[in-house]
Amino acid sequence: MENDLISKKDLLEETGISYGQLYRWKRKSLIPEEWFIRKSTFTGQETFFPRDKILARIEKIKNLKEDASLDELSDILSPAPSGVEVEKNKLVQEKIVSEVTMDLFAQVLGIPEVFDFRQTLYAYILDKLLASGEISTDEGKVLLKTLDEHYSEFAGKSSEILFARKLGVSFCLLVSGSTQFSFDVGTKLVSRVNISSIIEELKTKLSNGGIG
């Protein structure tokens, strides 16, 4: 649990939004339910938010809402997969996924002509991790297999993908959001990616590229 919380009152003052706006955004699920943390204070129950996350989110909503309707925004921000389908070439052209990643994807899962959202997401995560240099191509294959086999169990929920290495052996973990865990001494956490924020990023990229 985050220690750095902001109360609802302070949040409204800091961002200049009104109660009505906050509730409207909550209703449209622009702000995830799990960010509303209820705590008991001397005035009774008060609602708190994780400070950094909520401030960044509100800034984002404020910027985006000029161009998009709230319903469109909620599609972009929700962790649920959207119904987009993208052609393979388009993904490469729009530089969402690199050629190298595409080849690797083809080796493991085969190459569909049209990518649905989930496949796009896998390719995007793979591309991101490969580009960061944190994992090797062999580990990339493991990652794809893990996602392909198990991600459906996590779909729509917030989840994280972790990569850890011990004595040169690497392994991949898919965990649901805000789970606490620790490794033994010899294990090193190589990479940790929040899938919900990746989805958000990907959806923004897709809509900027005129897809979806």
Partner: peptide, 8 residues
């Protein structure tokens, strides 16, 4: 209601 929130 436990909580009530809205514009108007």
């Amino acid at each position: 209601a436990k909580e009530v929130g809205g514009e108007k």
